[in-house]
Amino acid sequence: MRKRLAELLDDPTLLARYRAAMDGQAVGRMVPSLPYIDGVPADSGLRVRLTTTRAVLEVGENVVMLSAAGSTFEFAPAAEAVLRPLVDGRTIDLATLADTAGLALEGVAGLVQELVAGQAATVGSLL
C-alpha cells in the first residue's frame, strides 16, 4: 500500500488537479441579485460578475463546464465566449457579452440566470 501511495504522490499533475478541483468548489460571496432573483431580464446595461474568483472553466468538444461556488454548470460550446471574461474576473454588461459571443441578448440573460440561481453570479446595474 505504501508503494502505491508513493506512486500516486509522485504524479506531477497531482497538485494541479487538486487545486483545480478545490477552486471549483470554493464558495463565493453570497451577493443577492435584487431585484433579479426570479429572472434576469434581457437588459443590455445589466452587469454581471461571478461570486467567486476561483471558478474553473473546462472546454470540451461538445460541452463547456463551469465549476464555481460549489456547483458545476454544463453549457453548449458557444457559451465559452460568455463565460471566459467572467472566469477571468471581469464585471461586464450583458450587451458586451452578447456581442462578444455573437449570441442574442435573451440567450445570454438565460445563461446568466442559471448562474444567478446557482449563486455563482450576481447581477445589477451598479456592479
Rank of each mutant, 00 (worst) to 15 (best):
G107D: 15
S71P: 00
D93I: 02
G118C: 10
G39P: 00
R4F: 14
E114H: 14
Y36M: 07
V87T: 02
A76G: 05
G70R: 08
V59I: 15
G110P: 01
R2K: 09
P35K: 12
T122E: 10
S67Q: 10
A68Q: 08
L15F: 10
D23T: 00
L9N: 05
P35S: 10
Q25V: 11
E7K: 11
T13K: 14
S67G: 13
V27W: 06
L86I: 06
A81V: 03
E74D: 10
R54N: 13
R17W: 01
A42S: 14
R47M: 12
D23G: 00
E7D: 13
L14T: 04
A20Y: 00
V116S: 03
Q113Y: 13
G107N: 13
G45S: 13
V87Q: 03
G110L: 10
K3R: 12
L94K: 02
P77M: 10
Q119I: 01
L8S: 12
A76N: 09
V108M: 11
L111G: 05
A16K: 13
A69C: 09
A98M: 05
G107T: 04
T51P: 08
A117R: 11
P12M: 13
V56C: 02
L46S: 09
A78Y: 07
L97W: 03
T52L: 04
G107I: 00
A98D: 09
F75S: 04
V108D: 06
L5Y: 11
L103E: 14
I92A: 10
L46F: 11
V31N: 06
A121L: 07
Q25A: 15
G102L: 12
G70W: 09
P35L: 12
A69K: 03
L66E: 02
V108Y: 04
A42C: 07
A79I: 10
L111T: 04
D11C: 04
A117W: 10
G28V: 05
R2C: 00
M22Y: 06
V112A: 06
D10Y: 05
A42Y: 06
R47V: 01
E114L: 14
R49E: 03
V82E: 08
L57G: 05
P41N: 13
R47Y: 05
L8R: 15
D10V: 03
A16E: 15
M30D: 15
E80L: 07
D88Y: 01
G102D: 08
R84I: 01
D43M: 05
V59K: 09
P12R: 07
R2H: 13
E61D: 12
G24Q: 03
K3C: 00
M65I: 10
G118D: 06
V40N: 02
L111M: 15
V123T: 09
G60L: 08
L8T: 02
M30V: 08
N62G: 07
R84K: 13
D88T: 05
N62D: 14
D43A: 12
S71Y: 06
A55K: 00
E106C: 00
D88F: 07
K3M: 06
L126S: 14
R47H: 07
L9C: 03
D11F: 01
F73C: 09
R17C: 09
G39I: 01
A117S: 14
Q25K: 13
A20I: 01
E80V: 08
